Each structure stands twice: as C-alpha cells, then as structure tokens.
Computed example of a mutant assay.
Amino acid sequence: MERRAVDWWVGLFVLLGIGALVVLATRVGNLSGFAFSNGYTLSADFNNVGGLKVRSPVKLGGVTVGEVTRIRVDPKTFMALVTMRIDPQLRLPVDTGASIYTEGLLGEQFIALQPGGMPQDLKPGGTITMTQSAVNLDQLIGQMIFSKASGGK
C-alpha cells in the first residue's frame, strides 16, 4: 500500500512538471497571446529592429493591441520595414509614434505605440512615420567604456 502512494505522488509530480514545461514553451514561443487575425495592418520603418521577431506584441499603454506579422528590408530605403496587425476596434491618429522596447533586462522585444493628438486616423495599410529604433545594449556599454577610457583625467 505504501508503494502505491509513493508511485501516485511521483506520477502527479511528473505530470505537474510536464504541465510547467508546456506553459514555459508557449510563453517562450509567444504562442499564448491572442491572435489578431481579423485586424488591420500598419507598417513602420526602423533603422534597427534589434531582436524583434514576427509575432512579437504591439502594445499601447502596456496593453497588447496587435502583433508583428512581417519584418523585411525595404530595397529602396534599406531600412527595416515592420508590418503589424492591429486590433480592429482601435483607431490610431496619423501622428502615432512607434518605438521598439525590451521587456525587462533580458526579455523579449515589442513595439510600443504612442498615439498623437491629430483628429485624422491612420487608414488600414497606412504607415507610422515617427519611429524610434531598438536600443543596442552592447553598443551602449561599449560607448560608455570608451568615453570613460578616453576622458579619464
């Protein structure tokens, strides 16, 4: 009887471990978010997208309102062209800005939208013109070290 109880607890522990791994895999794979399949698309040009990926979230005020659907290089401007799908109920002004941020120190990157104050709305397929590229942490650390080394009197 005692052996059966130990086997039952071990089995329960293994099932909980497998469940935790499934949750972790969906979080890392960005599969747990809501799919914005019926939203409208917007695009934005960035100098550097850093580690931004397809299916990365698009947030407004910390709330996920869309997702990145495509990242490519524009052959005319040589900038990264990011296409995103936005929740159909959300209408953004034409002077909306977009920035790429990192969630936490080592978290995933996402696009943060900052709506403007213009009365006209961006049309589906429109372009966000005011953008701020991703911050390269390695480059910032290198610049800081270089500036300390060169001005160290």
Score class of each variant (00 low, 15 high):
Glu67Asp: 03
Val22Tyr: 13
Arg4Gln: 11
Ile18Cys: 06
Leu137Gly: 12
Gln139Trp: 09
Val68Met: 04
Gly29Glu: 12
Thr131Pro: 00
Thr127Ala: 06
Arg85Phe: 02
Ala20Pro: 01
Ala25Asn: 13
Val63Asn: 01
Val14Pro: 00
Phe34Gly: 07
Trp8Glu: 13
Val28Ser: 00
Ser37Ala: 06
Gln132Val: 08
Gly17Cys: 10
Val54Leu: 13
Gly97Thr: 03
Asp138Ala: 03
Thr129Asp: 14
Thr64Ala: 04
Pro115Tyr: 14
Leu15Ala: 05
Gly117Leu: 12
Met130Gln: 01
Ile145Trp: 13
Ser99Ile: 04
Asp74Arg: 10
Asn38Val: 05
Gly39His: 04
Phe36Ser: 08
Thr83Ala: 08
Gln139His: 00
Phe78Gly: 11
Ser56Met: 10
Ala98Tyr: 05
Gly61Asp: 01
Ile141Lys: 04
Pro124Thr: 14
Lys76Val: 15
Met130Cys: 05
Thr69Ser: 15
Val94Ala: 03
Gly116Ile: 09
Gly125Trp: 07
Thr96Asn: 03
Leu60Gln: 01
Val65Tyr: 05
Leu12Pro: 09
Gly117Tyr: 02
Arg27Met: 01
Ser150Leu: 13
Phe36Asp: 08
Leu113Val: 12
Gly19His: 11
Ile18Val: 15
Gly104Met: 06
Glu103Asp: 02
Gly62Met: 10
Gly61Tyr: 02
Leu31His: 05
Asn30Trp: 08
Val135Asp: 03
Pro93Trp: 12
Leu113Asn: 00
Arg91Lys: 15
Thr41Gly: 02
Pro115Val: 10
Leu106Cys: 07
Ile86Pro: 11
Leu12Cys: 10
Leu16Ala: 05
Ile111Met: 13
Leu106Ser: 04
Ile145Ser: 08
Ala134Trp: 08
Val65Asp: 06
Leu16Pro: 02
Lys59Val: 08
Arg85Tyr: 00
Gly11Trp: 00
Leu90Cys: 03
Met144Leu: 11
Ile141Glu: 10
Val28Gly: 00
Thr129Ala: 10
Lys59Pro: 04
Met1Ala: 13
Thr83Glu: 13
Leu42Tyr: 01
Pro124Trp: 15
Leu12Ile: 08
Met144Lys: 14
Trp8Gln: 11
Met118Leu: 05
Gly125Arg: 12
Gly50His: 02
Asp87His: 09
Gly125Ile: 07
Gln109Ile: 01
Pro75Arg: 11
Glu67His: 07
Thr96Val: 08
Ser147Gln: 11
Leu140Tyr: 07
Arg4Ile: 00
Gln114Tyr: 01
Lys76Cys: 12
Gly125Ser: 12
Thr131Asp: 07
Thr129Asn: 09
Thr83Pro: 08
Phe34Pro: 03
Ile100Thr: 02
Arg85His: 04
Ser99Thr: 06
Leu52Gln: 06
Pro124Lys: 14
Gly51Phe: 00
Pro57Trp: 11
Phe34Val: 08
Ser147Glu: 14
Gly50Phe: 07
Lys76Thr: 15
Asp95Val: 02
Val10His: 15
Asp121Met: 01
Gly117Cys: 01
Gly126His: 09
Leu106His: 09
Asp138Arg: 15
Val6Tyr: 11
Val135Phe: 10
Leu137Tyr: 05
Ser133Gly: 06
Ile111Asp: 02
Ala80Asn: 07
Lys153Thr: 10
